[in-house]
């Protein structure tokens, strides 16, 4: 049996996304493919696979990485944002499936996500500023698009950046003592 689910996770919620996929796996629903919005699950063994989501440089560059992962028994099940994010799974052998085993690499991954979000935020700020300037010259211009789309999105990104910064700070503190 198959099940399709539409669900939206923001970049900084990738850990929640992993938890959700693993929860589905425990209920016997295994992710077969996804584009980051539409998730296709296939019914099969309870807790058969464990899932992870990772931001990579780009899919063209990560072909080598996917090959490397497959040697370690890790399957690539989906991609979103033009290959920026990849969905991975590994057969559950009773040991937790992790992609990063030390603080340095974990930190590096979070910083990569933060960098992308910073670029997003900068773009949104520029667009918002342009809108504001335009509306100065044309008082009748209705700023609905700006208010309803850009502003909430910008606020969401800022919130996400805050969440990520907290996580990065915690790890950096840890790194002062431990490797």
């Amino acid at each position: 049996m198959m099940k399709k689910v539409c669900k939206l996770f923001m970049a900084w919620q990738f850990e929640e996304e992993e938890q959700w996929l693993n929860q589905m796996s425990r209920q016997g629903w295994q992710l077969e493919k996804t584009n980051g919005l539409l998730y296709t699950f296939q019914q099969g063994g309870m807790d058969k696979y464990q899932y992870r989501v990772q931001m990579v440089d780009s899919l063209s560059k990560s072909g080598d990485y996917l090959q490397f992962l497959s040697e370690a028994g890790i399957e690539h099940v989906g991609t979103c944002f033009n290959g920026l994010w990849i969905y991975l799974r590994k057969q559950n052998n009773g040991e937790p499936f992790e992609l990063f085993s030390d603080t340095t690499s974990q930190l590096h991954h979070l910083q990569k996500i933060k960098k992308q979000l910073d670029i997003c935020k900068a773009l949104f700020c520029v667009v918002y500023l342009l809108e504001c300037i335009l509306s100065l010259f044309d008082p009748h211009r209705i700023n609905a698009l700006c208010l309803l789309v850009f502003l909430p999105f910008l606020m969401a990104i800022c919130h996400g950046l805050g969440t990520l910064s907290e996580k990065i700070k915690t790890l950096e503190k840890e790194k002062l003592i431990h490797d």
Binding site: F68, L69, E71, L99, F100, S101, T104, S105, H109
Partner: peptide, 25 residues
Amino acid sequence: GYGIMQSVERMSGGRVKLAAGTLYG
């Protein structure tokens, strides 16, 4: 790659389990 993971786990008596993303980086 996979050989390195196995070798490191063996050498460290199972203590150090390198994750694939960490090793690749």
